[in-house]
Each structure stands twice: as C-alpha cells, then as structure tokens.
Simulated scan of single mutants.
Amino acid sequence: MSSPVAVLGVGMHPWGKWGRSFVGYGVHAARAALADAGVDWRDVDLVVGGETVRNGYGGYVAGATFAQALGWNGARVATSYAACATGAQALDTARARILAGLCEVALVIGADTTPKGFLAPNAGERWDDPDWLRFRLLGMTNPAYFALYARRRMDLYGATPEDFALVKAKNSRHGLYNPHARYRKEVSARDVLASAVVCDPLHLLDICATSDGAAAVVLTSVDHARRTGAVAPVRIDAVSTVTPTFPNTVLDMPNLSTDASTTVPAPARTFKESIADAAYEEAGIGPEDVSLAEVYDLSTALELDWMEDLGLCKRGEAESLLRAGDTTVGGRLPVNPSGGLACFGEAVPAQALAQVCEVTWQLRGQATGRQVEGARVGITANQGLFGHGSAVVLTR
C-alpha cells in the first residue's frame, strides 16, 4: 500500500451547454478548489491539466494553458490525456510528484467544451484501435455500443428495460440536490420508458448527454495538509490505471470474443474487474469497506455492470440491489449520489475529477440533500478508449 496524499480542496464549474471556452470553465473550477483549500495560487508549484483534444492547441497543452490563464507563477506543468479516465491519470501524475517529494501543492484541472451529437474518434486512421474500428467500419456510435452491453445484461441475467429505467429515476432524484448538475429534474421510470428509443433496448433518457463543465482538485502531502491546520483530511489511498492482461486482449467489446484457451488459460477476472482489484490492493481494503461509489453511467445499464465490476455485488445481482433501494441515498450502498453522468452529461477530461469532488464532499459530510451518512470510503470508476480505465479510492 502506497502512502496517501491529501485532498485539500475541490471545486467545479456547473455542467451545461454554455458555449464558452474550456479555459474559462477550468479557471472557475480551479479558483473554487483553491478557495476550498485555503491555498493562494502563488503557492501552487505544479499544475496538471486534463487534455481536451477537441479544443485545439490550447487543449493539447492544457497544463500550461490553465497555468497561463491563472497567471504565471513559476509552477511546473504537466498534461494528461486518457479519454474518460483523463482526470484520474492527471490526478495520479500529481500524486506521484508529491510522493516523490518533488512538489508540495498540486492543482489538477479538467475542463471541456463538447460538440452536439455523438463523441467520435477524430485523430485520423487508427486501424489497431477497436473504438475507431467500431465507429468507422461498423458505424457503431456510442449508443449502439451501450445497447450491446444492455442486451448482454438482459440475456445473461434477466435484466429488463424497466430495470434500466429505475437507474435513471434513482440518479435523477440524487441530482436534484447537486448544484453543479446540468439536469436537476426528477424523472420516473415511466418517463424513461416513454422517451424515444435510440438503440433498442435503450431509450433517450437511458443515455447521458454531452456537456461543458470543469472540475479541479488541490492535492498535498498529508503532512503538509496537517501543517496548514486540516484535521483528518480526505486522502487518496489508491489510483488504479491498469491495462488488460493477455490473453484477455479483446477490450471489453460486448459484440466480439476471442478464444486463446488452447494456448494460455483465460484470466479469472475481466479487464474492468482488474481495475478495481488493483485499486483495492493498493488501498489495502476490499469492496466490503466501501461506503459509496461514483461510477461511469454513460448508459443506465453500464451502472449495473460497474457495480459488479467493482465487486460491490456478485454477477447478476445488481438489479436486485437496485430494486431493493440499496443503491439509493439512504440505502446500504449508494451508487452515484452525485446524480452521475445521467444528471451531468459527459465533459470528458473533467468527469473523473468530478467524481473525486463528489466523494470528497461526501466523506467530509458536505453533500447537502444527498449525503451518505457515515461515509468513510468511496471509490470511483471510469473507462477510457483503447483499453484503459481508472478507479480512485478515497478515505477519511
């Protein structure tokens, strides 16, 4: 188990469709995080930016872009890109420098301005990238991809469209109390099922939108946090960014399979499960210790998959927990108390950091209206393109 670092401050720019530069969103979130931490910008000695490939050169050098916008202060900069896992990898970069003794106060920022419609790979021909292949050769946009996951749950575990609709209804209730959420309106399962079918079995309200937004986190060593007067600060005990292990090299594509069993035994755990396993091992805990989870609900069915990938229940049991109310705030194991991407939409470089913000507020007891009582341990989960993902464990 590695040494923890402290989350001294968190901040966000509300999600929406604002039509402005990602830089402005990032600066807003950064200033909120600095104020929350009680840290002067001039005391920050590292800025890590979440790269935003859709936003031109400034996005490709996001660390320097944010540092310039905040006012050159001599800080070192770094930039990370890992699709939907960007925020976690940026966080890990900052954590590594703190643990190495190379900086004391790090500011991690992720922000995005997204286009309308589908998010599609846009970096030329990538014949070895299964995500590019499914877009270009199969015409399989994300909703079609999500629908295959949903259909798999139906075939394997008896899930129903009504179950998927219950996920959205639950998250919409949570989002009512989140001032940073884009959608703050309660919807019922009936509303979800009455919305247009996008890709059977998923309806429009089963699928998250694309959004503008930003999140930021101030990290320090635990010793530095205590010297500033922070008592029992929230800690990052693990950041997992593992990749698949051979022979499980088909990157969780629900419509494809491979059989290498004639040469090498198949691994006992899937790629997404291995992300969680590595996080638990590093933090020295198990899924039984988790108080709440913020997971990657690009579609309602994916939330159910992630519950099982994180080991929060056995395979095929997620629907039972959902129906029993266990995954709602007030239940045994709340999932997405923030409202999740169902209420935020995707702002890709920011969403893993937004999950860390939510878990931090929960562990501090500051999530008014959606507070998970007695929360001590939170875990997040994201998946990026091209076979990588992330999980972050925070404790108090």
Rank of each mutant, 00 (worst) to 15 (best):
S274H: 12
V77Y: 08
R95S: 01
R323H: 02
T380A: 12
F344I: 10
V61D: 14
L321N: 13
I109E: 05
D223P: 00
G101A: 03
A352M: 08
P244L: 14
L394Y: 02
A230W: 08
H388D: 05
L202S: 00
G49L: 12
A181R: 07
V10N: 00
F386I: 15
D163S: 10
G38T: 08
A214D: 04
A194L: 07
L310A: 05
G175K: 03
L133P: 11
N122W: 01
T243I: 14
R151C: 03
M140P: 05
A37I: 07
V372Y: 12
N255Y: 06
I275T: 06
V335S: 14
L363Y: 00
G58D: 09
D128F: 08
P130H: 14
G311S: 02
A111S: 15
S21A: 15
E51W: 00
K168R: 15
N73L: 11
P244Q: 12
L107A: 07
R95D: 00
T86F: 00
M12S: 13
D309G: 09
V242Q: 06
Q351K: 09
R364G: 11
P337F: 02
E373M: 00
E104I: 09
A350M: 05
R235W: 02
L204D: 10
L156G: 07
D131L: 14
V167D: 10
S299E: 06
V167S: 09
K185F: 13
L394Q: 11
T141F: 08
L137K: 15
G286Q: 12
A214N: 05
P201R: 04
L91E: 09
S261D: 01
G24E: 15
G331W: 03
Y145C: 04
G87N: 12
D92M: 05
E162T: 11
G63L: 10
V23C: 08
V264S: 02
A318E: 09
G19V: 11
C199Y: 00
S221R: 05
L251F: 10
A232H: 01
H388F: 04
A214Q: 06
P14N: 13
A196C: 04
V198P: 08
L363I: 00
G284M: 11
D128S: 12
L193S: 06
T327G: 05
Q366D: 15
D252V: 14
T52W: 00
K170Q: 13
G345Q: 10
A216L: 11
G56H: 12
W361I: 10
A391M: 06
V348H: 11
K116E: 14
G340C: 10
L102K: 06
A354I: 11
G58F: 01
A64S: 15
W361G: 08
V53W: 07
V295I: 15
V39P: 02
T65I: 08
L193F: 07
P233K: 00
G110M: 06
L46W: 12
V10K: 00
T368V: 15
T258H: 02
I207P: 04
V61W: 00
V39G: 01
C84S: 14
S240Q: 14
S257T: 11
A85C: 07
S338Q: 08
Y296N: 13
A276H: 05
L133W: 03
T368N: 13
F135M: 07
S261N: 05
Y57G: 05
T93S: 14
K170D: 13
P161E: 12
E104P: 04
